[in-house]
């Protein structure tokens, strides 16, 4: 901050005296910043120490990692039959992501309305909805996958349910935030014209938030394709099962092949959904 003062004007004592309060505030912010950085560094140090991270282990591990990378080149599926199996698993992964997102969006929509402050005036009810959404959200997709595998058995259905459950929480929260950020004026207009609460939602709020919601859902489809690739690790269908098998058996060229396959699929879906989102909401960016 002192350089800035030098840049703009020579330190004039009268001026400094007049704005002493401002300068003190600036110094205080600076002190806070230094304290914050210090605290973060101390915390990081303690975490490193507690987690037993040693420099030597890192160096050794990276050496090992280098060997793996060398073994990964060139990527290959082993045989054409294998490649077909992997492609099938990839299609299953995308299907899991698609179904999971769709179901989550359908269920999250009414929940989002219930959790919005300007739709449900009862604060207690709205608070309860919010907190339960938070609870669902706090549990990772993979944990849900494990639980659902126990409930409905191994296979992609557990994966669909897992993605659905964890996304209900997030989408519900995002939907409710979008609804709360909507403009009040159309609502007042509908009320003035004699509309009921349902009319208000249908004619004043929904037209505003629907494009935003759609693009959020598309974004989640993208991110769910990524999550769906790993839920196979706990047996909930998709390509993850093959990936974990090949890593455990050190078939590094196949691992590389699978990773490339996932990357290609994710990139394709990203591109597609980016195009769609662009078509839906134009250049506006969406709060996520």
């Amino acid at each position: 901050m002192s350089d800035r003062r030098q840049l703009t004007l020579p330190a004039d004592p009268a001026l400094l005296a007049r704005h002493a309060g401002l300068l003190r505030a600036q110094a205080l912010t600076r002190l806070n910043m230094v304290l914050l950085v210090g605290a973060i560094m101390v915390l990081a140090g303690i975490a490193f120490w507690r987690l037993d991270v040693s420099f030597w282990r890192i160096v050794k591990g990276f050496g090992e990692l280098g060997t793996f990378v060398v073994l990964m080149i060139p990527p290959s599926a082993g045989s054409w039959a294998n490649a077909l199996v992997y492609l099938h698993a990839l299609a299953e992964t995308v299907a899991i992501a698609f179904l999971g997102t769709l179901l989550a969006a359908i269920i999250a929509f009414p929940l989002g309305l219930l959790a919005a402050r300007n739709v449900v005036p009862a604060r207690l009810f709205q608070f309860m909805t919010r907190r339960s959404l938070d609870t669902v959200r706090g549990v990772d997709t993979l944990i849900w996958a494990l639980i659902w595998v126990n409930v409905v058995g191994l296979g992609p259905f557990a994966g669909v349910l897992a993605i659905m459950t964890s996304d209900i929480g997030t989408l519900g929260k995002l939907f409710s935030e979008a609804i709360e950020a909507s403009d009040r004026k159309p609502v007042e207009g509908v009320t003035a014209a004699g509309g009921s609460r349902v009319h208000q939602i249908r004619f004043a709020i929904l037209p505003q938030v629907l494009p935003v919601m759609l693009s959020q859902v598309l974004y989640f489809f993208e991110s769910n394709t990524r999550s769906a690739t790993i839920i196979g690790i706990v047996g909930a269908g998709g390509i993850g099962l093959h990936l974990v098998e090949q890593i455990r058996t050190f078939e590094w060229d196949r691992v590389a092949f699978l990773i490339l396959l996932i990357l290609a699929a994710v990139a394709a879906i990203d591109w597609l959904s980016a195009r769609l989102r662009h078509a839906i909401i134009g250049d506006r960016s969406v709060a996520l």
Binding site: D52, V53, R57, G61, L142, I233, L243, I259
Partner: peptide
């Protein structure tokens, strides 16, 4: 794009079990 868990799987093989590959 590569999920964290895939990195974790590979790192567990490289660095051994424990929190380090997770970090």
């Amino acid at each position: 794009t590569v999920p964290e868990l895939v990195f974790a799987l590979i790192f567990v093989v490289a660095f051994g079990l424990g929190p380090l590959p997770g970090v």
